[in-house]
C-alpha cells in the first residue's frame, strides 16, 4: 500500500538536465564568442563572451584596452556571466590576441557581418 500523494516524489528526478544529455548538440559552452553590435552611426561594440574561468577577465580587459587602444568594460550578465565589452570593431584583433596567447583557435567563434 502506497499512497502516491504521500510519497516525496521529485517530478524532475528522471528528467535530468535536458541539455546535459545532448551536450554535444547545442553546446555553446566551450566556445569563446566574439560578437559585434552596431551602435549609432558607424560606431560598433565588440563583446567577448565565454572566456574560460582560468583567465582573469579583468586583467584581460586591461590588456585589450592597452593593446587595441580602445575603451572597454566588464559587464556582468545573468545568463552569460562576465562579458568583456570593447568599443569599436575589435573582433579580428581579439581573435588574434587570444590565439597568440595560447588559446585554441577552434574554440573561438567570431560572429557578425
Amino acid at each position: 500500500m502506497s499512497v502516491q500523494n504521500l510519497n516525496s516524489y521529485d517530478p524532475f528526478a528522471d528528467e535530468g538536465d535536458p541539455l546535459g544529455d545532448s551536450a554535444d548538440v547545442g553546446s555553446t559552452a566551450d566556445y569563446i564568442h566574439i560578437r559585434i553590435q552596431q551602435r549609432n552611426g558607424r560606431k560598433t561594440l565588440t563583446t567577448l563572451q565565454g572566456l574560460p574561468k582560468q583567465y582573469d577577465s579583468k586583467k584581460l580587459l586591461k590588456a585589450f584596452k592597452k593593446e587595441f587602444a580602445c575603451n572597454g568594460t566588464l559587464v556582468d550578465d545573468e545568463k552569460m556571466g562576465q562579458v568583456i565589452q570593447l568599443q569599436g570593431d575589435q573582433r579580428a584583433k581579439i581573435s588574434a590576441f587570444l590565439v597568440e596567447n595560447g588559446l585554441e583557435k577552434s574554440t573561438i567563434k567570431v560572429h557578425g557581418f
Binding site: 535536458p18 545532448s22 548538440v25 547545442g26 553546446s27 555553446t28 564568442h33 560578437r35 553590435q37 552596431q38 551602435r39 549609432n40 561594440l45 563583446t47 563572451q49 559587464v75 550578465d77 545568463k79 552569460m80 562579458v83 565589452q85 560572429h111
Partner: peptide, 28 residues
Amino acid sequence: RIFFMACESCGSRRSVNAIKSGFQAQVG
C-alpha cells in the same frame, strides 16, 4: 528541440547547433 540536418544526396544525418543569440549589450 534539436535540429537535424539530413542530406538528400548522401543520406548522412547530423544534428546542428541551435541558434543562440549571445550577449546583447545595452545600446541606446
